[in-house]
Design a protein around this nucleic acid. Structure first.
Lengths: 241, 241
DNA sequence: CAGTGGTCTAGACCACGAG
DNA sequence: TCGTGGTCTAGACCACTGG
């Protein structure tokens, strides 16, 4: 069977690899190829679809990245028995998030001091305890309503020129995003009952369930920054995958 | 400059595209190319790196997907001013998660009945209200300790053969994963204070902050299943990106 | 060992969109 | 308009790993 635009009326001028992706996905959805089945190898599909093998390869790799196919040398390509549920979410910068909602962004620095990295954090991050750090706490507002309470530790030695920056006037988040590219980032989602400080910062009651994000960035094994972000009550982080 | 294995001692036998990725990333980290700068075009880089343009293209596309580069036809490739913070997280199947932690998995069906889709859910999902559905509630345990409380609605018309399945005996989650491939999935993370039922199911106290996942799968605009998963207190979902 | 995917190449044409 | 990335191709060699 050939894939022509007629087969998929929505796709008039679609890259051929995408057409192959769609067709393979359709066959899986329609049970022509069932979970665990081996599908024809790239060479055969290339002939069937009238494409080069490289094009078929690209399409199948996309589907494998998506978790729908399972590919192994010599063993061939199979429909994944256990489609891994992956979700890619982009974590927006607070200000953009607030402004794109049509609200006025502002933020307030609650505290700003030099302080050694506490043992608890050092343990969690597998970083040297007592490392000299900058400790920042800030609240981000949309139309005067608190959206996020941020508790951040920054390694001043991680990026050139950081010592010259006064984070009391510069938004730390944005400065770091623009000036401290990283090699590795960890993110963790969890839920926590607001403690007294969280509640005060977010103008809610202690005990309120908050979505909490922990995020750290690294260059090699060199910590740049780690932050705990408590979102306002009811905040959701969504995804499409 | 040529990229030879000697340049990066860790990479003896690395695909050439990956070497290019590493080198470009290094240049950005080392500020040889700064945020907003235009970098040489693919043809030039191909010459510099001694690779085919297709290989350079592949490498740069990877970096662009990652959010580190911004590419546009005619305008060329630039270092992203605003590296989008993306995170890809894989949501493990409960049972695997529990078993990989070395615990014994079990689950218990709390309720199982046919019921029309409630208005609140229909609204949230933009699905027809009153649609006939199967409503399942279940708890998943590891070594007898509750890990997740799951409140699920299944559209029995979404998949052939579903009517014949008795979800009192079959794990709905796994049956669906294996038999109901989907085109689109939405996931949302939020935090909620445990209500009386959550607390009972997860053997905790009402008010306890819980990480809550809402997940729905669709084929075209055809709802397959939607589920609210409340995780045990303290549960974290982590990521590497 | 040999079949399968992984990768690369040199060349080509095309689509987009900045100048 | 025309430089740039997007895509495809035909062929090739290689790395892995299942039988």
């Amino acid at each position: 069977m050939n894939i022509k635009p007629a087969d998929r009326p929505t796709a008039q001028t679609m890259p051929k690899a995408q057409l192959i992706v769609s067709e393979v996905r359709r066959r899986i959805l329609d049970r022509e190829w069932r979970q665990g089945d081996r599908i024809p190898d790239e060479a055969d599909l290339a002939v069937e679809f009238g494409a080069a093998r490289a094009t078929v390869n690209k399409a199948l790799q996309l589907l494998a990245d998506e978790g729908l196919l399972d590919r192994r040398r010599r063993a061939g390509t199979r429909v994944a028995v256990d489609p891994v549920r992956k979700a890619t979410l982009s974590i927006p910068i607070v200000r953009e998030q607030i402004e794109s909602a049509g609200m006025a962004y502002s933020h307030r620095i609650i505290a700003h001091r030099r302080s050694p990295l506490p043992d608890a954090l050092a343990l969690r991050l597998a970083a040297p305890a007592g490392m000299p750090m900058i400790h920042l706490r800030a609240v981000h507002y949309g139309d005067g309503i608190p959206f996020q309470y941020e508790d951040r530790w920054i390694n001043p030695q991680a990026v050139q020129g950081m010592d010259a920056v006064d984070f009391r006037h510069v938004n730390a988040n944005e400065w770091l995003v623009r000036n401290a590219p990283y090699l590795r980032a960890d993110v963790t989602f969890s839920a926590a009952n607001a403690d007294a400080r969280d509640a005060r910062m977010l103008q809610t009651r202690p005990g309120q369930a908050l979505l909490v994000l922990h995020r750290s960035t690294w260059n090699d094994d060199h910590l740049i920054t780690t932050v705990r972000i408590a979102c306002r009550p009811g905040h959701e982080i969504g995804t499409r995958g």
